[in-house]
Write a protein that binds this DNA or RNA. Structure first.
Lengths: 257, 257
DNA sequence: CGCATATTTGATAGATTTCAATTTATGTGG
DNA sequence: CCACATAAATTGAAATCTATCAAATATGCG
């Protein structure tokens, strides 16, 4: 249990979507954490488990899973460093999905108890948590469009565009970022077969839209890839770039929302 | 603007997922509403529109839509009478999806202003709203499994099982309920083609799993249909039947969550 | 260096879409 | 209440996309 500033990437994510004053931000940073390391492919939250803490991703990539009775899996969300993977568990502690590290990962556990006391003291924090989930839900909606209405090439392209934006790697029609996940994992995100993911990636490579070097992925022409993907970044609510952060509860100074 | 008890189905939905005391329940029922009637296939909330009220469904079926650039649509959520279709708009007023009536519908508009003052007075109400969205998100996750990992027959069967459960129509391995939506709408939910929905429904009929009489749908053998669908009702959080309603904020009497 | 895991490729089967009619409901005005 | 106009459901045949199965490389790691 420590009281460091390791939660600052998460705070950055929250303030990207909600406006928090100094005291509220301080309350977040002060939250006690318990750091754990998770091996690749290890579940660290299991289905129907009752959890008493939230998992904030510090390093690595985390997937939220659901599965069919036969065991084929669907990844319903991808969590990158700075994301809280199951903030909703504060309000509904029984996990309806499993969380798995797709790569070796470092997780910061924040107890529900401490989060609840922060929420009780600062209503704007409750609101920020709620809003965080809403944005996640908007991402899920886009994924549903992906799964239901786009072909394999667009699905993969869309995913790559999204991850590039979420990692902040896009600049000047170009993006380079690490995506150390398996093609099997990509298939579980996109509702395809690992084989088909492989072929689709090759097609994108042959069109000179992307370049894959090991786990390093380069988007050579972001605009064209976004066109193939039918991607627009608005739904990601990267507030710094796309609009005003939100707040309902009045700021202490009396500033309106 | 009236102050009647028309919100009581919505209150029922909320208390199915969260525990609210008398004062809190009263605060919900007291909310001023503005009733509107919407024709079938009419959008009543448009994409990127900034809304200042929540739409509670009183009658009819409402779909939440997203679409690709070419205009093919994906329904990302279905809202039945008693559901608030965009409760999240209280926290994030810009609509990231459109809302459309799939049938003639009656909508109760509840202003954000009045909701916010209820939230300010009763933190448990904020919490209940948040939790409501979390359950919606769990439903979306199941839909993602549907879209990504199940074949046409299972997708349709799963949807029918879900709607049957949500309308409370299931009893004794049998369910009869009205589903006055078009096969085109079903295809937009399931990520299929209207033609394929038609063929799949016929297949389910030929297996004597369902019976369709106009817009009245009968599930002849719920257990078998659920097996085909790989359906289990847990995620719907129909708390009355499946577990304790939740609450974080202490009850006034001091009762713990 | 060698095992285990991941990627890549080929050939084939299967599911779903697409396109184009046709039939059947549904609603409306006379 | 009927006739008409429109929307919805249904069917067939062909084209496409994606999955499946099986094997052959690569790659990473101890």
């Amino acid at each position: 249990m420590s009281f460091s500033a390791e939660l600052s990437p998460w705070l950055g994510r929250l303030t990207m979507r909600s406006r928090l004053d100094d005291a509220e931000q301080h309350a977040i940073l002060q939250l006690p954490i318990h750091t754990i390391h998770v091996r690749a492919n290890a579940d660290f939250v299991r289905l129907d488990e009752s959890v008493d803490h939230v998992s904030v991703v510090a390093e690595g990539i985390v997937g939220r899973f659901d599965q069919t009775a036969e065991g084929t899996r669907q990844i319903t969300a991808l969590h990158l460093p700075g994301d809280a993977a199951d903030l909703h568990s504060v309000a509904l502690p029984r996990a309806r999905s499993a969380l798995q590290a797709l790569t070796p990962a470092t997780i910061l556990r924040v107890s529900h108890a401490s989060l609840r006391s922060a929420m009780a003291q600062y209503p704007a924090i409750t609101e920020a948590f709620w809003r965080d989930g809403i944005v996640d839900q908007a991402v899920q909606s886009q994924w549903m469009v992906n799964l239901g209405r786009r072909d394999a090439k667009a699905r993969i392209a869309h995913l790559l565009c999204e991850v590039a934006c979420r990692t902040g790697a896009v600049a000047d029609n170009h993006a380079e970022f690490s995506l150390p996940v398996t093609q099997q994992h990509l298939s579980e995100v996109t509702g395809l077969t690992a084989v088909h993911v492989n072929r689709t990636l090759r097609a994108l490579r042959e069109e000179n839209l992307i370049h894959a070097e090991g786990r390093q992925l380069t988007i050579l022409d972001f605009a064209s890839l976004a066109r193939v993907a039918d991607f627009t970044a608005g739904y990601l609510q990267m507030a710094v770039a796309f609009g005003e952060p939100e707040r309902i509860v009045a700021l202490p100074q009396g500033e309106p929302s």
